[in-house]
Nucleic acid binder design. Structure first.
Length: 884
RNA sequence: GGGCUCAUAGCUCAGUUGGUUAGAGCGUUGCGUUGACAUCGCAAAGGUCAGUGGUUCAAGUCCACUUGGGCCCACCA
């Protein structure tokens, strides 16, 4: 017999202890070869710079539930963990710490800086892992990968070379999103657009032939006018027809620029004439290509104006905007300023406004990759949960743009491209050698003057290989064969484009197979006002604080129970009280059972027991309820309805097992049968709750007299529908109705009890007077309308009333005062309601349409319902009179 | 501009294919609890399911529109 449990559950004592034991006993590790079926989830690798936030907590709890559930279900469950090198984010962190010493990364040089980053990673990179462990995550940590590991880097290089050979990677000058602070290119997805109140400036450009006449153009970024090389109008725009082909003098720079006609110009916007700056705007870039315009880049990578900006050179872009406007105003060429809303791209790492910037970058051609990735989703090989994301995914994939994968930062995978200076000196487009390692000499000219491309790859270029690069692809190996494709991917909607879509494409390209079958997209965790949780808003609820205060199981359970499929989660700290209270309820119910349990009673086999013994109705009932809860849990988890599963487990345990069963068995708790059943139900329930609340379930499991091994090694219970007939369950329901009825003096009865019912009521002295008379009256009436008979009647104690109805043994305390007059009124209301219901049903059953269309079962049940209702009304009438 | 999503109790939200009396947690009120649990129990109050129209024997659930929130996408100079 274990030592007695304390009155309250203390998560702090147990969590660390069990996590260590699980880990030390290798219970998380998935070994092959194995006869079992694989069930694999790859973790969305958190950034090495990451600190656990609620999003992680939710995301990883869901994964852990799936993993633990399938492990118990008999799968060889693997949760593949790891971290992401997070190029820009990590570089920023290290740069910030250098800045404290007054240093810039340029002061160190590439190699020294990179080794600083590695140092940082060694020191801090496992923070997030340690935090995931606090969350109870049952990852196979022995397999932990990092996207910058040597082997992983090889996978990245392999992928690049593969695509290059397939001619799906190219290099070229394009307008890309440029972050002047990070000084790197960003992909379209990395530039997040925010709507801002800006201004639309109308600038007047004088005509060369007639300097008194002007063409007005509207722009939001007037400083870029320094790089204008044309003004465009719509060819259909009659206002400007006569000007097409004429020359304008670009103010401040005095460059001659042409007026061109282009159908992409919107006649409705601004003045209908648009300044064309091919080096600073993607639209203008296309126009520039089409009309063979000059590309004048007036900015440096740091966001300052360069030499081509003439006297504005050296000014920051926003300062330059002010100065340009001021000068134009002075010479009378600033026509007007209008308020204007526009959405401006911001760097998703440092929130600096990005600049559309012309530069030479590497791109992946996406359309050929997207095509098969569209197909697998359309034909259902990959399913999104909830389904609506399918549309979002397809919409993006069908309009996919090429992916800019080069970054001008230092921390990341160097692009596996080498340049032969000799060849390049002859032709700048030649001399490119794509290779995993530095070639000794140029294969064309044998020169040894070879240098590697300075740019690194977009972090997502490594992440998109995650489902197979973690298994050491391109090396063919048993793990890869066994675990790929993985079962499910659990992630947030923000990264469908960044990551999910690209993984699907890479899986199909490199492995010729989907990377996962199911994609579960959970909601974003927001604060109670619906705002995203972020440090800058100061509205963060730290999961680690919640764990410290309420415990991990409480955190997990609360998070899951409020996560409706795919709906955003609005969170406040009070939410976690529910989880804590539930943990405590489980604790105390277990404590009660263990206190009353005689270990010699628990060895019988449930099935055998069932065959040989006549089961008490209470015990039959709770078993029945348990199995329907089990069934529901299975169904909910299969459909990724985690909150439904959690809520089902919650209400079974609290409102059925504790509130009813444990209360009702108290008088018979010493009986052998009841001992066995209450133990078995607890024992089985612990398994059901374990994926959700791993720690408390283990702690109690270990205190069970029959416990062997860890609860993690136990099997998920099998459905045993034959043990319990529907009739039993119905009977129990009937019994509860009676109890409730008596308790409330509410007249509501069903027939058909075969067992003895003993109702014993306790009440306070004060209520005694008020209750006893109407109660006896009431019971009498019950006995009249039903087949129930009052076989005994007694007043055992001052404040108790008991009577035995037929065959069932139930003792219930009665609490509260009953107001008879009110009950009569309520009865009348109920009768009224029922009568209108009956009318409704009668019309329905008389309706030919209904009878023609509805399936037979429905008609039958409806008929039965009607009959029931009519009977009820009769009973209610009788009881009403009895109460009177 | 295109798409998605939400509106249900005082608050935060469930409600799976239309089908008995629309549920939970918290909050409020009343009663109770010295042997599992005050992190508790029993009950009560509180809902024209955003509005209008439609389909149906039957609508919180399906359709259309309206109102008001939230999110995503897009080359809005």
């Amino acid at each position: 017999m274990p030592e007695e449990l304390s009155k309250q559950y203390d998560p702090r004592e147990t969590e660390e202890k069990w996590y260590k034991i699980w880990e030390d006993s290798n219970l998380f590790s998935a070994k092959i070869p194995s006869q079992k079926k694989p069930y694999c989830i790859v973790i969305p690798p958190p950034n090495v710079t990451g600190i656990l936030h609620m999003g992680h907590a939710l995301n990883n709890t869901i994964q852990d539930i799936l993993i633990r559930y399938h492990r118990m279900k008999g799968f060889n469950s693997l949760w593949m963990p790891g971290t992401d090198h997070a190029g820009i984010a990590t570089q920023n962190v290290v740069e910030r710490s250098l800045a404290k010493e007054g240093l810039k990364r340029q002061d160190l040089g590439v190699d020294k800086f990179i080794s600083k980053v590695w140092e940082w990673k060694e020191r801090n990179g496992s923070t997030i892992i340690a935090q995931l462990k606090k969350l109870g995550a049952s990852c196979d940590w022995s397999r932990t990968r990092f996207t910058m590991d040597a082997a992983y880097s090889e996978s990245v290089a392999e992928a690049f070379i593969w695509l290059y050979k397939r001619k799906l990677i190219y290099q070229g000058y394009y307008i890309i999103n440029w972050c002047p602070r990070c000084q790197t290119a960003l992909s379209d997805e990395e530039a997040s657009h925010v709507e801002l109140q800006g201004s639309l400036y109308y600038l007047k450009y004088p005509l060369k032939d007639n300097p008194d006449k002007f063409i007005s153009v509207a722009t939001t970024r007037p400083e870029t006018m320094l790089g204008d090389t044309a003004v465009a109008v719509n060819p259909k725009d009659i206002r400007y027809k006569e000007y097409v082909g004429k020359i304008l003098i670009l103010p401040l720079v005095n460059r001659q620029i042409k007026i061109i006609a282009d159908s992409t110009v919107d006649t409705q916007f601004g003045t209908g004439a648009v300044k064309v700056t091919p080096a600073h705007d993607p639209n203008d870039y296309r126009m520039g290509k089409k009309h063979n315009l000059e590309f004048i880049n007036v900015m440096s990578p740091d966001g300052k104006m360069n030499a081509l900006a003439g006297k504005f050179s050296g000014l920051d872009r926003f300062k330059a905007r002010e100065v340009v406007l001021e000068e134009l105003r002075t010479i009378g060429l600033l026509e007007k300023i209008q308020e204007h809303k526009l959405s401006v791209g911001h760097c998703y790492r440092c929130h600096t406004i990005v600049e559309p910037y012309l530069s030479k970058q590497w791109f992946v051609k996406m359309r050929p990759l997207a095509k098969p990735a569209i197909k697998v989703v359309k034909n259902g090989k990959i399913k999104f949960y909830p389904q609506r994301w399918t549309k979002v995914y397809l919409n993006w994939m069908e309009n996919i743009q090429d992916w800019c994968i080069s970054r001008q930062i230092w921390w990341g995978h160097r692009i596996p491209v080498y340049y032969c200076k000799n060849c390049q000196s002859k032709n700048p487009d030649k001399g490119i050698i794509v290779s995993k390692t530095k070639p000794e000499k140029c294969p064309k000219c044998a020169s040894t003057d070879i240098s590697q491309e300075k740019d690194v790859l977009d972090t997502w270029f490594s992440s998109w290989l995650w489902p197979f690069a973690t298994f050491y692809w391109p090396k063919e190996n048993a793990d890869l064969k066994y675990f790929y494709p993985t079962a499910a991917l659990v992630t947030a909607p923000e990264i469908i484009f960044f990551w999910v879509a690209r993984m699907i494409m890479s899986g199909l390209e490199f492995r010729k197979n989907i990377p996962f079958k199911d994609v579960y997209i959970h909601g974003t965790v927001r604060d109670i006002e619906g705002k995203k949780m972020s440090k800058s808003l100061g509205n963060v609820i730290d999961p680690l604080e919640v764990i410290a205060e309420y415990g991990t199981d409480a955190l997990r359970f609360s998070l899951i129970s409020i996560t409706t499929q795919g709906q955003d989660v609005y969170l406040s700290k009070e939410r976690f009280e529910q989880g804590r209270n539930f943990a405590n309820k489980i604790w105390n119910a277990s404590r009660f059972i263990l206190m009353n349990l005689k270990p010699e009673n628990i060895n019988a086999d449930l099935c055998v027991f069932f065959k040989n013994e006549k089961m008490d109705i209470l015990n039959r009932w709770i078993i029945s309820r348990f199995y329907s809860t089990l069934k529901k849990t299975d169904e909910d988890l299969a459909a990724y309805r985690f909150n439904e599963a959690a809520n089902g487990l919650y209400s079974f345990f609290w409102h059925e097992f504790c509130d009813w069963y444990l209360e009702l068995i108290k008088p018979q708790i010493g009986e052998k049968q009841t001992q066995l059943i209450m133990y078995k139900i607890l024992e089985k329930y612990l398994r059901l709750i374990h994926p959700f609340m791993p720690f408390i379930s283990e702690e109690i499991w270990q205190r069970l007299p029959g416990a062997k091994d860890s609860i993690m090694q136990q099997k998920w219970p099998h459905l045993q529908p034959d043990l319990i007939s529907d009739d039993d369950e119905k009977q129990m329901q009937v019994a509860f109705d009676i109890i409730n009825t008596v308790r409330n003096m509410r007249a509501e009865m069903e027939v058909g009890l075969n067992n003895r019912i003993e109702i014993k009521l306790t009440f306070s002295d004060r209520s005694r007077e008020k209750i006893i008379a109407p109660l006896i009256n009431y019971i009498k009436n019950l006995a009249k309308v039903e087949t129930l008979k009052i076989t005994e009647k007694y007043l055992p104690q001052e404040n108790e009333f008991a009577c035995v109805l037929k065959d069932m043994h139930i003792v219930m305390p009665l609490k509260g005062i009953v107001n008879v007059a009110e009950q009569i009124k309520k009865n009348q209301l109920k009768i009224d309601r029922l009568e209108s219901e009956i009318k409704n049903k009668e019309t329905m059953l008389a309706n030919k349409n209904f009878l023609g269309r509805a399936p037979k079962e429905i008609i039958d049940t409806e008929k039965a319902k009607l009959k029931d209702m009519r009977e009820q009304v009769t009973k209610l009438e009788v009881i009403k009179n009895g109460l009177r």
